[in-house]
Design a protein around this nucleic acid. Structure first.
Length: 886
RNA sequence: GGGCGGAUAGCUCAGUUGGGAGAGCACUGGCUUUACAAGCCAGGGGUCACAGGUUCAAGCCCUGUUCCGCCUACCA
């Protein structure tokens, strides 16, 4: 049953592919239809960009999801982890545009249809990359349910949602100043604009007042937009300008007549208190333009260059135009002064280009009405954010929500399902292309050229992927999903919008819990970026250290904070842990060779467990309990560290060492058998607890030590058994460990090599229980310390030339062959004495405090008294020994 | 401007209802110990940011201060 052909170093190569294929062949990842929702556990993946490659953030996000799914699966839930990818409009279009630019072509050369064909070809060829990378990570997704946001089913959901929202008046089309990316040549939503603080200049420009020698001075950071000015505004109550209201200013360089208007939006404190108004290129100016019926002059082409409205500046880009305009103003004497200025400038979140406010006709979703139930759902606890502080972030945004610009001037995406009638201008908003205009019946229709924001389809992800609008069994079984795992950077982009759409179209929240995972930084806490060269590529890590090491590292580092700092050093540390597991498995397999698992007399063995067996089981079940709590609370780091420390520090460092003599001897078969039984039981439970974190190595070892369950991933998750948790047993073993540590400490201090046998005298101060404990369990001390001559008794005399170790109730003497250095021994004892004395004094001080005695709980006082007594005893004996050393 | 989070060992962070300051990594010394040198044993290292307050008792609760980070906003 037990093979031991294992090499001493764990090598993940080959094993990972083997087991992943095994799981696939057995169909373990596949979820079943189960209409009793209580028995289901479901997660929809945050769909990665189809053009994407696995980065370290994906690795973390998906590791955590897989931990949840594997844990719940082992707990017996019917689990669904639904995978998929996102068509990522701008990003994907960019990639293919770059590709065809190598052929010196633009998408316009190809035309819409041909270009889309190219993207689909590209998607078929490379779109599976990220999916394969998720598989390498060990993700147990139900691949039979793989979805793509542009699939027919999901597209239908998008059209249906659009049509319904339009018919309810929640989607509308309007001329508005939106965020325009001149490079992507599309509109963007507000949240797709990242503001970056930049140093700039504030220009003061004199605008002459018509028919007078006067000027009115305006201040601006964007002098080039003056070409589109159609007014100058001042505050109605500003005494400096009151008399100018209603007069005409002449726009320098252009000569346009601008009326000087009064509007309370103007802040008299800022700049000169007079503002140039460019209604087509500034949102506030636009609003003011509407209030005052101003002319809207659009200066820009779609590519960000100035159009014919800019006169002689036509054809320049914004940057060039700014220089030229300033130069001209200077030459003509209109530039009054220039100040340094610091302000935030919007950049495209996809390509980092400076965003231009741009007046154009776009489609919008009215958000307020959708947001209200979404706010209520979280307030009522139907959705819980973990960590909870993200709830505030969600509310903050939802309560100040603005309408969402959803039209994009791209080709790759869901085309807006609106057909305009060229004869009667009617808008035909339909799920499927109409053959004729619903109003005039003519067939002269053309479809809106724009596509929808990718996030529009992402917002439907939790139900569109389950088959909505059809009432599928999947939808009935798995909606609402159990948990969403994602990063805080997309709470607004994605999470909030899913909540709104889920409530609107399914009348239920899309998920009950939202776990917000931290974002990954480098070891110095800095953002990873290609330009900084501090990127950790998970694919290289997978190659070099294996999936288990990467997953365990990421899990262990996952804390409740916002960021985790990752370095290759950390990964090495957890790679070492995989090796530790590997070797403890080797040891176990070797020592279980003659152990017949098929015929375990469970009760018989359990009733004959030794002290250390009971101890490790007590620790094991405590660990199981902690793991359960931590996982339930989404404390992945704590859970990972708990099993790490139990395995390494308690199981490997102590238990294995304790039982070696029992395993190696032949006289006492029962003792050997109980040790083997416990060894097997603890190891198999460790493997199970580790499986969600390290699926591959645990599966590999499982098949070498288990006979009953065909795969660890569908084995039963360990349950707490209270009767095995025994604090008294733990205390006893800690006492034995304490003695061993004291002896090791002395040996280390005295430079006695580990392998050197020593004589050992253990003197116990008239405590029968303690004496019995040591007497009965001396084998465990002998297992860890090489002893030549041993003497245990009460009040043993200190032998000559010996060093002393003192702990509660016990004195340890180790005679040395040579004369000991009295001074050195004194220093050693003094060092200990000083430490303990400080503790004792603190304790005594407390006990002398009448308020403490009268007000603290009885239990606390008792504990303090006990502590004081113990410490006092040790101090007295230490002092006595020191005196005798004279 | 508004909001949120953070400050504990050299680094990254735990620290549950207030009751003896912890882990991992790093560092120092020792060890060919029949699972593992990717290992084993031992050790050093902290005014818990600062100042007050509540309490018998504060890393933890309250107030204020300083510094750092993030999000958000229409002062051109």
């Amino acid at each position: 049953m037990f093979n031991n052909d294992l090499p001493s170093v764990y090598d993940p190569k080959g094993l990972e592919e083997k087991w992943y294929q095994y799981w696939l062949d057995k169909d373990y990842f596949k979820a079943h239809i189960q209409l009793d929702k209580e028995k289901n556990y479901s997660i929809v993946i945050p769909p990665p960009n189809v053009t994407g490659s696995l980065h370290i953030g994906h690795a973390l996000n998906n590791t955590l999801q897989d931990i949840l799914i594997r844990w719940k699966r082992m707990e017996g839930y019917n689990t669904l982890w639904l995978p998929g990818t996102d068509h990522a409009g701008i990003a994907t279009q960019n990639v293919v545009e770059r590709e065809i630019s190598k052929e010196n072509k633009t998408r316009h050369d190809l035309g819409r249809e041909k270009f889309l064909e190219r993207i689909w070809q590209w998607k078929e060829k490379y779109g599976g990359n990220i999916v394969n990378q998720l598989k390498r990570l060990g993700s147990s997704c139900d691949w039979s349910r793989l979805r793509f946001t542009l699939d027919e089913g999901l597209s239908r959901a998008v059209r249906k949602v659009f049509v319904q929202l339009y018919k309810e008046g929640l989607i509308y089309r309007e001329n508005y100043v939106i965020n325009w990316c001149p490079r992507c040549q599309t509109a963007l939503a507000d949240i797709e604009v990242e503001s970056v603080e930049e140093d700039a200049y504030l220009y003061y420009i004199n605008y002459p007042i018509k028919d007078s020698g006067e000027y009115i001075t305006v201040a601006t950071v964007r002098p080039e937009t003056m070409l589109g000015d159609t007014a100058v505004a001042v505050h109605p109550d500003d005494p400096r300008y009151k008399r100018l209201i209603g007069k005409i200013a002449i726009l320098p360089l252009v000569g346009r007549e601008l009326s000087i208007i009064a509007d309370s939006y103007v802040d008299p404190e800022f700049g000169t208190g007079a503002v140039k108004i460019t209604p087509a290129h500034d949102l506030n100016d636009y609003e003011m333009g509407k209030r005052h019926n101003l002319e809207f002059i659009n200066l820009l082409n779609e590519d960000g260059t100035l159009n014919e409205q800019a006169g002689k500046f036509k054809g320049l880009n914004i940057e060039e135009a700014r220089k030229e305009v300033i130069e001209a103003l200077k030459n003509e004497g209109y530039l009054k002064k220039v100040e340094n200025y610091h302000h935030a400038v919007g950049h495209c979140y996809r390509c980092n280009t400076v965003i231009e406010p741009y007046l154009s006709k776009q489609w919008f979703v009215k958000m307020k009405e959708l947001a209200e139930p979404a706010i209520a759902a979280v307030e009522e606890g139907k959705i819980e954010f973990i960590p909870s502080r993200w709830t505030k972030v969600y509310f903050e945004w939802m309560k100040n929500i603005k309408d969402w610009c959803i039209s994009r001037q791209l080709w790759w995406g869901h085309r807006i399902p609106v057909w305009y009638c060229q004869d009667c201008s009617t808008l035909n908003v339909e799920e499927y292309e109409p053959s004729s205009c619903k109003k005039c019946g003519n067939q002269n229709l053309f479809q809106d050229p724009d596509v929808l924001d990718t996030w529009f389809s992402s917002a439907l992800w939790p139900f569109s992927t389950l088959g909505w609008p059809e009432e599928t069994d999947d939808l009935k079984s798995f909606y609402p999903t159990s948990t969403l795992v994602t990063g805080f950077d997309i709470i607004f982009f994605w999470v909030a919008r899913m909540v709104m759409m889920g409530l609107k179209f399914c009348q239920e929240v899309p998920f009950k819990k939202v776990y917000i995972n931290p974002l990954i930084r480098d070891e110095k806490g800095e953002k990873m970026s290609k330009s900084k060269g501090n990127v950790i590529d998970p694919l290289e890590i997978l190659e070099e250290y294996g999936a288990d090491a990467l997953r365990m590292t990421l899990s262990a580092l996952t804390i409740q904070g916002n960021f985790i700092c990752l370095s290759e050093e950390r990964i090495k540390g957890f790679r070492n842990f995989t090796n530790k597991i590997w070797n403890v498995a080797r040891f176990s397999i070797l020592n279980l060779k003659d152990f017949d698992l098929t015929n375990i007399e469970d009760d018989y063995l359990v009733s004959n467990l030794s002290l250390v067996d009971q101890w490790i089981l007590s620790r094991l079940y405590t660990t199981i309990e902690m793991m359960q709590n931590y996982l339930t609370e989404f404390k992945f780091g704590e859970a990972a560290k708990t099993i790490y420390e139990f395995t390494w520090n308690e199981f490997c460092d102590w238990y294995i060492e304790f039982i070696k003599p029992r395993l190696y001897q032949k006289k006492d078969q029962l003792s050997k058998k109980t040790a083997q039984y416990t060894l097997w039981l603890v190891l198999s439970n460790i493997l199970k607890l580790l499986h969600p974190f390290m699926p591959f190595i645990t599966e590999e070892i499982w098949h070498r030590i288990s006979y009953q369950e065909e795969s660890i991933m569908i084995s039963t998750w360990p349950k707490v058994k209270d009767k095995f948790i025994q604090p008294k047993i733990e205390k006893k073993v800690f006492k034995i460990m304490d003695i061993i540590k004291t002896i090791r400490n002395i040996k280390s201090d005295m430079n006695i090599p580990f392998s050197k046998e020593i004589d050992l005298f253990i003197s116990i101060n008239k405590d029968d229980d303690l004496f019995t404990l040591i007497q009965e369990n001396i084998v465990y001390i002998e297992a860890l310390i090489k002893i030549k001559e041993l003497k245990i008794g009460t009040s043993i005399e200190k032998p000559p030339y010996s060093v002393t170790g003192i702990l509660e109730g016990i004195e340890i003497y180790i005679p040395l062959q040579k004369l000991i250095d009295i001074e050195e021994e004194k220093n050693r004892l003094k060092k200990r004495l000083t430490k303990i004395k400080i503790e004792l004094e603190t304790s005594q001080k407390k006990l002398k405090n009448k308020d403490f005695i009268s007000r603290a709980p009885e239990e606390v006082i008792m504990k303090e008294k006990e502590k004081s007594r113990e410490l006092g005893d040790i101090v007295a004996r230490l002092e006595n020994h020191l005196k005798n050393l004279q």
